[in-house]
Amino acid sequence: MNFPKYPKIAGNRLTLALILAMIAANAHAEVVVIVSAQSPVTSLTAEQTARIFLDKSNTFPNDGAAFPIDQAEGSKARNEFYEKVVHKNPTQLSAYWARVIFTGNGQPPVALEGNVTVRRVVANNRNAIGYIDKRYLNGSVRVVLSVENND
């Protein structure tokens, strides 16, 4: 089937521009690891954070109980967090939890839907730790690790 030449190119350019804009938007969707503003924890390394989210440790380095909160499977924040901080893609993470759960050695974190919900639950519990898109930060939570520092 023959389509007119110019509209096709224009259409492709428009698509390309949209894709580029989305890539640019994604590139700025930085994820930050947060605890409640009432928490005594001030900073964590990627390694310490990964241990808590992989159920290898259930305490913060200062020995306080740590309760990790995930974002929903497939969410942008979750994929970014696991890729940059934990160094696992969704398939590797899935295989990891199959191993841990089915051998009775642990349980994955509770997952909540959305940056706002995670921020609210973390803000209200001094033992909680979560991660959100940086744009959703406010004074109720404290950043303990920024993902861009760990590239």
Partner: peptide, 20 residues
């Protein structure tokens, strides 16, 4: 747990089903 936001633990029983 969210309702008892001050508590550190989940006091409700949790069940996990799965397989391979």
């Amino acid at each position: 747990w969210v309702a008892n936001a001050g508590a550190a633990d989940i006091s409700q029983p949790q069940l996990t089903f799965g397989g391979f």
